[in-house]
Every structure is written in C-alpha cells, then in structure tokens.
C-alpha cells in the first residue's frame, strides 16, 4: 500500500532529526543522494549559529563551537518561521549543559550577543518625548505604568565580555579572554538609538535593574519608589526614581505611559 503524504513527511523529518533510514524504502532507487539533505540540515543551522554568535565562536574556537552549536541545534529543532530565532535558547543551554556550564563566560558571551541582536532588529516603536512626563497629572503618578521599546532588553553577565565581543565585531583579534566582574553578576541593558539605529549597551546599577524588572513586569511608579527605597535612604527614593525615569525616557526605552482609570492629553 502506498504511504500517505503525511506518513512520508513523518519519515523524512525523522530521518533528518534522528538519522533513521526508514524513508529510504519510499525513495526511488533507495535515494542515493538523500545524504544531501542530511548534510544541508546541520550545515545550514551551524552557519546560522556562527553568524549569530561570532564572539562565542571566537572564544571557543572552531572545533568546540561546532561541537557546542551542533549539540544545541540537534537538541533544539527550530520551531520558528525565521532562522533568526534559532539561537534563542543557546545562552540557557550553554549555562545548563556540561561541559559548557563549567565555562560560564561562554554563556555570558552568548547572552551579550543575543541581547545586542535583539536590540538591532526588534520592531520599531514610537518613543516618549521628555514633555510626556511633564504632562502626567499628579494623581496618575502613583499608579503610572510604563511600556518599553521592543528593542530594549536586559540580561545578566558575570564577565566583562563587551571588549572581547567588540573586537570580534571589528574583525580584530581580542587581546584577552573576558575576566569575571570583581563584585559578581551584573544586569546589563541593550537598546537601539532611535535616530541612528545604533545598538547601545551599559551595565545597570543594582537598584535600577530591580526597578526596571519591576516595571517591565507591570509594576507602577509607586512600587518603583518602594523598590528603590529598599536599596538606600527612603527619602531619596522618589527623586532617584524620577531621575532614572528621565534617563530612560531620554535613552528611548519608554514608549508609553498609562494609569488605570485615568487619561490625559
């Protein structure tokens, strides 16, 4: 009996994902050139990983990168329409999977490159101007919520990976492997300059990172102030929150303000 289209596709996909040979029985002459598909599947995905993570590649070297990226793509078949998202879980996988998890600088580099990539090509959005904050009515401030630009993203780093990555991006040889931060993990932000489209990044202060995490999770200005108060003098929290907010607006991180039940021009 002739196999159905769906059956043939199941066998073909199984071949590419697991190497099993059952599809050959459905191919003319056993499919002498079936290996073209075997080779193309992994080779194409490894090329994409190399393009998305050139600094991880440099850090690991050709063989180790091929081993790591190969194991990753075999273990994580893509589910996205665009190969752009193939490496979305690479950082977490590197951090969780021996032997790469014994080299946390590698996961850090992957996190940094992925964050810069998100900032580079995330969808556009109109950002708030400075005047928007001045227009917020007093009664709205405590419950004020914030929308963030799609290009703005944050990630944890334990190593000073930026100089290494920048050298690789300039096609130069990095001088040294990234060193760990003396004071432990830091939260970094990456975003896109609205005028030039250039990607920017910087480390966040501890209270700033906590406040941003809270706001991106739906928190309001009042809880931002309360969070910042937990990091220092309570009286300084409100002006510190206002200062941070001005900086975030100037950087183009904020795209919208809202307060439940309130509206203003």
């Amino acid at each position: 009996m002739t196999a159905s289209l769906a059956d043939i596709q199941d066998l073909f996909q199984d071949r590419l994902l697991t190497g099993r040979a059952d599809i050959a029985a459905h191919l003319t002459s056993g499919g002498p050139f079936l290996s073209v598909y075997d080779h193309a599947y992994v080779a194409r995905l490894l090329d994409i990983m190399g393009e998305d993570f050139p600094a991880v590649h440099t850090l690991l070297g050709d063989d180790a990168f091929a081993e790591a990226a190969g194991a990753y793509v075999r273990g994580h078949p893509s589910t996205a329409r665009s190969v752009r998202w193939l490496g979305a879980r690479f950082r977490d996988w590197l951090g969780d999977t021996p032997p790469w998890s014994d080299l946390p600088v590698v996961a850090d580099m992957a996190a940094f490159e992925w964050g810069l990539g998100l900032a580079f090509d995330a969808p556009d959005a109109d950002v708030l101007g400075g005047a928007a904050l001045a227009a917020v009515p007093p009664e709205a401030w405590p419950v004020l919520g914030f929308d963030f630009h799609p290009a703005f993203n944050t990630f944890e780093l334990s190593h000073e990976v930026a100089p290494f990555q920048q050298a690789v991006a300039r096609e130069e040889n990095p001088e040294a492997a990234p060193a760990p931060f003396a004071d432990g993990a830091q939260t970094w932000a990456a975003w896109r300059d609205g005028a030039t489209c250039q990607v920017r990044y910087r480390a966040l202060a501890g209270d700033e990172a906590a406040g941003l995490a809270l706001l991106r999770d739906g928190g309001d200005f009042q809880t931002l102030c309360e969070t910042l108060a937990g990091f220092g003098e309570a009286d300084a929290a409100a002006p510190r929150a206002a200062g941070y907010l001005r900086g975030w607006v100037e950087a183009g991180w904020i795209t919208g303000l809202s307060a439940p039940g309130l509206s203003w021009a």
Binding site: L16, L17, Y41, P77, S78, T79, L86
Partner: peptide, 11 residues
C-alpha cells in the same frame, strides 16, 4: 517541517 518543527530546508 512537520508537527511545529521548521527544518529550514526546502524538502
């Protein structure tokens, strides 16, 4: 691809 997987090849 099938079953939600995208093999990123023209099969």
């Amino acid at each position: 691809g099938a079953h939600g997987v995208n093999l990123h090849d023209l099969l």
